[in-house]
Design a protein around this nucleic acid. Structure first.
Lengths: 184, 184
DNA sequence: ACACAATTTGAGTATACACTCCAAGTTTGA
DNA sequence: TCAAACTTGGAGTGTATACTCAAATTGTGT
């Protein structure tokens, strides 16, 4: 038989609860009890929907990493402006996901290694995409130099994101745009 | 009576064990058992020297934050080159501390809030110091613009540090120098 | 309305954790 | 050499944690 609607909703509540907890207090604060309390669910329901606590956490982290890079099919056509704008929008419109994104790379999760590798692959793809956009923007760069420039710009953007995660009153959009001007 | 030498050495072993564990696997991997095993000490000895597990962790994190900024009395005299060189040297010469430094800002520690505030204060002081150095370097900057430039350069450096923490084969010195050049 | 699968409940289990305690051993200064 | 202070080992405590299970309840297609 097909899934029940109520189950789908419960799943969504659990994912959202996990995301908030991760964003607010990291993996330490994200206990099963905390998740269940916030999602208004008992542990039995949780384990009816997820194989383990790590399952939800990994799912939330993966969703965050995916959400940074919208329109993955559009690769090869967007400009540096597009990419930086998308990054800024991600932080303004999805602050919870953004915080999870920043924290996930360095989180001391027991599944840290697989998460770290995933983040690294994601970063490589981004460097490539930024590098391509930079080459297309007119200035004649070799692919190698383009990659270095992209790593620099992305490094700067990620550093400012790091700074924002530390203190969310930090004006990330303003500095991200300045970084774009300076490192492009 | 003075402290016994053997106790001082045990304390040092515990601190070092905690630092390695934090650098390798974050707070999750840094259990009391793991610390004691690595330091070759039983829990009774641990609690003879430290009030709690958090005590050592906080101490290790504070030491890392302090170590980034050598010669704090020299403030007001060093150049941007000096500051960037010191940062690079920190990563090359003290990779464990450096990794703890990067991770500490966003760690999901139960004492996360006090650690985060401490890191933020540290960052503010660094921005000020970089800003001063930039103003002194010749180009006529207002203090406000100097602070913005400093935040940008530091953001870039921290982002590259972040990148290095993710994958320690990343050539941090090379990129840190490239980032610095963009501000000359 | 019925059958039956999906979902929920909540008490229960096993374990890993941080931390305590104190007797026994060791180091130190006089 | 002595005694006081410090250090150590290691069994033991309480608690929070992730996870299980069987019975009860609810949702859905027919």
């Amino acid at each position: 038989m097909a899934r029940y609607q109520v189950g789908v909703q419960t799943e969504a509540r659990i994912v959202e609860a996990t995301r908030s907890l991760l964003a607010e207090g990291g993996t330490d604060a994200t206990t099963l009890k905390a998740i269940c309390d916030r999602a208004e669910v008992r542990s039995g329901s949780f384990y009816n929907l997820f194989r383990s606590k790590e399952d939800v956490i990994i799912r939330v982290i993966r969703e965050s990493i995916t959400a940074v890079d919208p329109d993955p099919d559009g690769a090869g056509t967007d400009t540096v402006d597009d990419l930086v704008d998308a990054y800024i929008r991600f932080f303004v419109e999805e602050p919870k996901m953004a915080k999870v994104y920043v924290m996930s790379a360095l989180s001391g999760e027991s599944s840290a290694d697989s998460t770290r590798r995933r983040f690294l692959r994601h970063h490589m793809r981004r460097v490539e995409r930024f590098g391509d956009a930079m080459q297309r923007s007119g200035s004649s760069l070799t692919p190698e130099v383009g990659a270095v420039q992209a790593e620099l710009l992305l490094g700067a953007l990620d550093g400012l994101a790091f700074r924002w995660a530390l203190d969310q009153t930090f004006d990330f959009p303003k500095y991200a745009l300045l970084a774009k001007e300076r490192f492009n």
